[in-house]
Nucleic acid binder design. Structure first.
Lengths: 270, 270
DNA sequence: GAGTGGTCTAGACCACTGT
DNA sequence: CAGTGGTCTAGACCACTCC
């Protein structure tokens, strides 16, 4: 006789269901059997079935909706953000003429999608620097800042691919009214172009990358389960005079984002 | 009368306990009250208490050990890996003499800890390239590879700060027996120095960063809960002739790692 | 109103840890 | 051995969605 399976039964059920999802027997978008149905068919209690489903949710395979049911998730578009090239690419684009810039933005650069496939959202406000932002921007506590929140999503998936929270010193920006107009962002040209209109040239961009659990808001917006981490990039832009001109926090769903950095090394002297 | 708290009671309990941990009333390392005690004192069922504790575990605040109890975690040492500088720094070190190299390795460079605070572990084996590694190293399926697993931990925390899985084509490496000797790794000098002894100079290193749930082994080794993500870096080293000479997967606990990348931008022509 | 997932209870047995 | 966390059961009520 075979030795019995030693794993907990809820995990066995979770893996059975996972196999059915992977094989296409439970295709994306379909409503899963309800918890009571699964309990009946598997011979387990509803509690154990719920444990199995919690596991599937942590794996990012299903989404539960109260009152409606549990759905199999579509495999998500994976996004590669190649920041090393991206930043230089954005800088080079600044000097192109507007017709050229309008053709493609950075998200298309990342995803290969065209502008018709994408939806944009922007939201501006004025805030005062809290302790963290004051330190990041190297300004005094309470300094007025322009806060810009924006996200981009694919038309085929409702959830955004990234959400950005960008902060700039308000007085830096006040000279160019375009920068205060939500309708003018981020096209055409991106932030580097807008800074260019203020006579600012970037010298360096530093990225700090972390992983952390999403806030409830972020989980909602990015359509991930609270158990799935987000990847965050804090991007600090420094201009040629050494001043920090923008700090942006970019939040991405950890289950479908790859960040790519390339390092060219200096040659040894032979 | 106050309107009642609308949140689930297990979450209220989780937040009460969180507050006690944050305030120091439940200091790091201490054994928490057992689940039955908490059930009695809170008036909830053990199931609800377990839900509260699951939440605390996902927040990374406590660690449950079967048969022993649930402990409050110590806040972890955060590690900043500055890969942009690190790789060039490693390359520059190759040409220094051995006495100089022995003084510090890359982990000290990251953490600011001295060599006396650190413990090392290494483990070598020969494997054949699977589909993924064959593609990453651009070799044929089944090509013999040297697989090196190593980790470094602080003496004050048992869990490693990083775990690396490094793969090199075996025939590339066979010429230098030092590279096959676990005792000789990674000190002194690191991989770049060992490649130097084979006449190999690196030209470029690419990093691909992802976040994902840990495997059960990784959760165990890094001492994180299965609900806490790991950050992974796939580091691909390319030599001056364009050949991929090493692929390394570096796995780090997501709750205490920051990756830092710095980009110097080219100046506009004025 | 019927069905769904979210919360909650009061039990039970198990594997594992300490003594 | 007693105590711990891990699994599991068979119920219950709730808020929510859809018809």
């Amino acid at each position: 006789m075979q030795s019995r399976d030693w794993r907990p039964r809820y995990l066995q059920l979770a893996e059975e269901l996972r196999a059915k999802i992977m094989s296409g027997e439970l295709p994306p978008g379909i409503l899963m059997p309800s918890e009571t149905e699964l309990a009946d068919s598997s011979g387990l209690s509803r509690t154990s079935v719920r444990n199995a489903i919690r596991q599937l949710r942590e794996w990012g395979l299903v989404r539960a909706e109260q009152g409606r049911g549990t759905y199999v998730r579509a495999p998500r578009q994976r996004v590669r953000r190649r920041n090393t090239e991206r930043y230089q690419w954005e800088k080079d684009r600044v000097l192109l003429d507007e017709a050229e810039r309008l053709k493609t933005g950075a998200t298309e650069h990342d995803t290969g999608l065209t502008v018709d496939d994408l939806k944009f959202h922007a939201e501006y406000s004025q805030v005062n620097a809290d302790e963290e932002m004051a330190a990041a921007l190297r300004v005094d506590l309470g300094t007025p800042l322009l806060r810009r929140v924006y996200w981009t999503s694919s038309r085929h998936e409702n959830a955004p691919l990234t959400v950005s929270y960008s902060y700039l010193p308000y007085d830096l920006v006040a000279e160019n009214p375009d920068l205060l107009d939500e309708g003018k962002e981020p096209w055409p040209g991106g932030t580097q172009h807008q800074l260019y209109t203020l006579g600012i040239e970037l010298d360096r961009i530093d990225d700090e990358i972390r992983a952390r659990p999403p806030s409830p808001d972020e989980a909602e917006l990015l359509d991930i389960d609270p158990g799935v981490s987000v990847l965050t990039v804090r991007k600090t832009s420094v201009d040629t005079s050494g001043r920090v001109v923008e700090v942006a926090d970019v939040v991405m769903p950890g289950d479908r984002t790859e960040l790519v950095y390339s390092h060219k090394l200096q040659r040894w002297k032979t």
